[in-house]
Nucleic acid binder design. Structure first.
Lengths: 201, 201
DNA sequence: CAAGAATTGGACCGGCAAGTCCAGAAAAGC
DNA sequence: GCTTTTCTGGACTTGCCGGTCCAATTCTTG
C-alpha cells in the first residue's frame, strides 16, 4: 500500500518524501485526527493535486506512510543500545537513551500517536504498530536471554515473559507521559524492571 | 463543566443520564473520534435539541461527561480488591479481577478510549484521566506499603516507585491489548510486577 | 528540439456532522 | 385550570475537509 506504482523521478521522490516528513511532523504535534490534508499542504508547501498524485488513495494512504515512517524512527532512536543488550552497562545506556528521548520530545511522541490515534483512524496501520511491537519485544527478549546465559540473572527466568512485562511498562510509561507530562512512571517502569532482572543473580 | 446549571426534573435527569450512558457505550465501541452526535441520538432515542438542551456546550461537554462516567467505572470494576491489597491472596484476586475484566471486554476499553482518544479530542478531559491515574496509583501504593509493613516484601523498597511501575505496566498492557488483541502483555506485567514484590521478602 | 510523461497550482464539488431554531407537548407550580 | 417552565422533535444552516478536475509547466528522452 505504501509503494507507489507509477514512475517517479528524483524530484518526485523528493517531493513525496517531503510530504511524508511534513505530515509526520504535523501529526506529531496536532495529532492524527486533527491533521487535515490542507494542514499538510500548508506545512509542506505543496498543493492538493501533488498530494493525491503521490498518494492516490488519499488520506488513508498518507497516514499509512506516516505510520511506517514513524515506526522506523522509534526503533532507530534506541540504537545502538537496543540491539546489543549484552551487559548491564548496555542496559543502563539503553535506559538512559529511552528516557532522554522521551524527555526531550515531551508529549510529542511518534509511537504514542501511532498507537493511540492512527490505528483508529487507519485500520491498515494497525499492522505497522503490531510489527513494531513485535520487533521491539524481540530485541528486549534477546537481551534478557543474553544476560541469563551469562548467569547474570535468575536462571529460571522466562525471557519472553519478562520482555513482555518490560515492554508493557515502557508503553504504559509513555502513555502516562503523554497524558500527564510526567516522566516518573516511565522511569520507574524501566528502573524497577531492570533491577528486577538483576535481583535474582 | 459537567454540572448542569438549570433546573432539571426527575424526567430530565433520567434523560440526561440515558444520553451519557448511551454515548459512553457508543464511544467504547466506535471510538471517540468516530462517534457523532447523530450516532448518540440514534443510540439513545433522543433528538439533537435534547442533546443540546442537556449539554449546552455541545460535543465537548458531552465527551467530558462521558470521560467522568467511564473513569468511575474503571476503579469500581477493580473493587473490592483494589482498596484492600493487604495480603498476597488479595493481590492475586485483584490480578484476576483486572485480567478477567479486560479479557471479557476485549478491545472495548473505557480507559483505553479515555486515555488514547478523548484527551486529544477534549483537552478538558485530560484532567479527568490524570485524576483517575492518581487515585489508581494511590491505591496500589497503599497496598505495597501495607505488604512492606507486614515484612512481606524487601524492607528497602519504595512503594511509590514500585506502584508507579506497576501502574505503567498495566497501562501498557492494556494499550497493547487494544492494539493487538493479545492479553499476554497485561498478564506478564501483572505477574512479573507482583512476583517482583514478593521476591525480596 | 520536439513529444510524451511527470509534476504542479488551485478552483471546485459534495457530503457530513456540529450546532441553531422554533413550535409544540408535557409537566410543575400556584 | 391556568401560567410558566421544562422537555422534545426535527428541519435547517453553516463550515470544514476529503477528494476531483483540468490546465499549465517542467522534466526526461530520443
Amino acid at each position: 500500500m505504501s509503494q507507489q506504482p507509477v514512475k517517479l523521478t528524483a524530484k518526485g521522490r523528493a517531493t513525496r518524501q517531503r510530504i511524508i516528513e511534513g505530515a509526520a511532523a504535523e501529526v506529531r504535534t496536532r495529532g492524527a485526527v486533527a491533521t487535515t490534508l490542507d494542514d499538510v499542504c500548508r506545512a509542506t508547501a505543496t498543493s492538493k493535486s501533488q498530494l493525491f498524485h503521490y498518494f492516490p488513495d488519499g488520506r488513508e494512504q498518507l497516514m499509512y506512510a506516516v505510520a511506517e515512517h514513524e515506526a522506523d524512527r522509534v526503533l532507530l532512536d534506541q540504537e545502538p543500545y537496543l540491539s546489543d543488550l549484552t551487559s548491564w552497562a548496555a542496559w543502563d545506556a539503553w535506559r538512559d537513551a529511552v528516557l532522554a528521548r522521551y524527555r526531550e520530545q515531551g508529549t510529542t511522541c511518534p509511537l504514542g500517536v501511532l498507537m493511540t490515534q492512527l490505528t483508529k483512524v487507519t485500520p491498515a496501520s494497525r499492522e505497522v504498530t503490531t510489527r513494531l511491537l513485535e520487533q521491539w519485544q524481540q530485541r528486549i527478549t534477546d537481551g534478557v536471554r543474553a544476560m541469563r546465559e551469562q548467569g547474570a540473572t535468575a536462571p529460571d527466568l522466562d525471557p519472553a515473559r519478562v520482555g513482555a512485562a518490560l515492554l508493557a511498562g515502557i508503553q504504559g510509561g509513555v502513555s502516562i507521559l503523554l497524558q500527564t507530562g510526567r516522566l516518573t512512571h516511565l522511569e520507574a517502569a524501566l528502573d524497577v524492571g531492570i533491577s528486577g532482572l538483576r535481583a535474582g543473580a
